Computed example of a mutant assay.
Amino acid sequence: MEKQEWQGYVQKVASCDYPIPLNLINDYDDWKCRSNVGRMLMILKDIEGAMAVLATVKDVQPDMEDAPEFGLSEAEHKVLCLRDIAEIVWRLTGTGDAPIIYLNEAYRLCREYKKVFRSADRGAIWARRLELQRSCGAEDAALSEARAMLEAEKAVEGVNPYRFHALKFIAESMAEQGDYAKAALLLADAYKSFPVNEAAKTALAEAEAAADAKERYAMYHHCTTIQYQPWEKDNVTTLEDVRRLQERNFARREAAKAAGEKPDEKGSFQSLIK
């Protein structure tokens, strides 16, 4: 890529409505900068620019032991780049074979990386492959893969994005066939593997109480569009974490004032969510 072309992309990303700090995007020799630029160009709907930049990343081998305290790991950068390349290829070709190759590699990295993902739902990366198969007329194969995933993950208790997305995919297929009652039951089962908080419990209870099966399914499915809690522990700070941190810091400041000491303004989100 020519330097002038690269600088043009950097300028576009740095001056958009949601600019990224220059230190995260200006170094072409740092592939993670190229990852940031390419993915932001995708968000800005500059598909040609995104593909030009992301193509320089597709063969990079990430350090699978990289686990920074803040920001994305190399594995996450690579997974997100592969995901976006798959979407670009899908938009340009309308065929599933090539995009699925990239998603297969992204899924492999998701499984191989044993540390926390701060950025993405690993189950959604896997399930996107099924959605493309369905769009290409291979829904039966996708359903078989979803059922195989359920079998493979049946011993895993608690939050499990792969089990959740497998059940969600099968439920959507049932709904397309008009079997809303079964689809709703499948989504209710799926939420046993979903990270829920009090707001989610309330929404799910309302869905369960709906008398009409189609409405019940629609309410359950609407809940799938809301990320009530992070998929993986410690990956993002929730609004509840912020509230608790504010309360804790307020109590600390008041105690310091009462003791005639200078209050400490510092707080750590990380200490709250570990």
Rank of each mutant, 00 (worst) to 15 (best):
A190D: 07
V242T: 01
E145S: 09
A155E: 13
K192F: 06
L167Y: 04
P230S: 05
R147Y: 12
K168M: 02
R163P: 05
K192L: 14
H221R: 15
N235G: 14
A183N: 00
W231N: 00
F164N: 00
G178P: 03
R134C: 05
P161D: 02
H222F: 11
S144Q: 14
D189K: 08
L150Y: 06
Q229T: 13
D179Q: 09
A155V: 12
L186P: 00
N235D: 11
G178W: 03
Y180Q: 04
A188I: 09
L187K: 07
F169P: 02
A175E: 12
P195G: 09
L239A: 13
V156W: 13
S173T: 04
Q177A: 07
T225R: 12
A207E: 11
A183P: 01
A175H: 08
A138C: 09
A171M: 04
Y180D: 06
R163K: 12
D241S: 06
T224N: 08
K192D: 14
A181N: 04
L167A: 02
A142W: 08
L245C: 12
A141E: 07
T224C: 12
E139H: 06
D241H: 00
P230L: 05
M149G: 04
A166F: 04
A148P: 03
K154Y: 02
L167R: 03
C136H: 10
L204Q: 11
G158E: 12
M174T: 03
E247V: 14
A146S: 06
G178A: 02
A207L: 00
A138H: 11
A171F: 00
Y180R: 01
E145P: 04
L239D: 03
P161N: 01
E208Y: 11
V236G: 06
E151T: 12
A183G: 09
E206P: 08
A188W: 04
Y162S: 08
A218K: 02
R248H: 08
A199H: 09
A213Y: 08
F164T: 00
E151A: 15
D140I: 13
H221G: 12
A218F: 02
T237M: 13
Y162I: 09
D234H: 14
D234R: 15
D140F: 14
S193P: 06
A199P: 06
Q133M: 15
A210S: 10
H222G: 09
Y191C: 07
T225H: 14
L143I: 15
A209E: 06
S193V: 05
D212K: 11
E176P: 01
T237G: 06
P230W: 01
I170D: 03
T202M: 05
C223A: 00
S193N: 12
P195A: 03
Y180E: 01
E153C: 10
C223F: 05
